[in-house]
C-alpha cells in the first residue's frame, strides 16, 4: 500500500515539474528543472522495482544530459526564451486529441501490477526460472542484457557510434570556420 502512495506522490511531482518546465522562460532554470525531473523519475523507477534502470537514469539522464544541455547554453550564449507569438490553440488541440486516443487505448489494459497480465506470461517466466542457472548471474537484468539479448547492446553501440560521428562532423569544423572568418 505504501508503495502505491509513494508512486502516486512521485508521479504527481513529475507532472508539476513538467508544467513548471513549460511555463519557465529562463533556459538555465528549465535545464535545472529537467535535471530534477530526471532524478525524481529515477526515484520512481526504484519504487517500481527497476533498480538498474534507476541507476542508469540518475547517472545518464540526470547527469550527462544536464551537462550536455548546459554546454549547449554556454556555446550558444542564449539564456532566455522569447515569448511565443503564435496562438497556442492548434498545438493544444493536437495534444488533446492524441491524449484522448491514448487514454482510450489504456482502458482495456490490465491493471497496474497485475501478475496475470500478458506481458508477464511470455518469456519473463523462463528468464526468472532458468536465468540464474543458465547464465550464472543472479541479477536477471544483467543476464538478459548481456546474454539472452546481447544483440540489443550491439544495436545500441551502433546508434551511439553513429550519433558520436554525427556530433563530431557537426561541431568538428568549428575551429576551422572561426579561423577562416578571422582571416577575412
Amino acid at each position: 500500500m505504501i508503495d502505491i502512495l509513494i508512486d502516486i506522490i512521485l508521479l504527481s511531482f513529475l507532472a508539476i515539474i513538467a508544467i513548471a518546465i513549460i511555463r519557465t522562460r529562463s533556459l538555465l532554470a528549465v535545464i535545472m528543472l529537467f535535471s530534477i525531473f530526471s532524478l525524481l523519475s529515477a526515484g520512481l523507477f526504484m519504487v517500481l522495482d527497476a533498480s538498474d534502470v534507476a541507476f542508469t537514469e540518475a547517472a545518464v539522464g540526470a547527469g550527462i544530459s544536464t551537462v550536455l544541455m548546459l554546454a549547449t547554453l554556454a556555446l550558444t550564449k542564449s539564456y532566455e526564451e522569447k515569448p511565443s507569438s503564435h496562438r497556442p490553440w492548434i498545438p493544444l488541440l493536437v495534444v488533446s486529441v492524441t491524449a484522448a486516443f491514448l487514454v482510450y487505448g489504456t482502458i482495456d489494459m490490465p491493471p497496474f501490477g497485475d501478475p496475470n497480465a500478458p506481458a508477464h506470461q511470455h518469456v519473463a517466466p523462463r528468464y526468472i526460472e532458468q536465468g540464474a542457472k543458465e547464465t550464472g548471474v543472479p541479477n536477471l537484468v544483467t543476464a538478459v542484457l548481456a546474454s539472452y539479448r546481447g544483440f540489443d547492446t550491439l544495436g545500441e553501440v551502433t546508434v551511439v557510434f553513429t550519433a558520436g560521428i554525427g556530433v563530431l562532423l557537426l561541431l568538428g569544423g568549428r575551429q576551422r570556420r572561426k579561423k577562416k572568418k578571422e582571416k577575412r
Binding site: 522495482d49 527497476a50 534502470v53 506481458a119 519473463a124 537484468v141 538478459v144 539479448r149 540489443d152
Partner: peptide, 8 residues
C-alpha cells in the same frame, strides 16, 4: 519478481 525484460 518484476518482469526483467522491460528493464533491459
Amino acid at each position: 519478481y518484476s518482469n526483467p525484460l522491460p528493464h533491459v
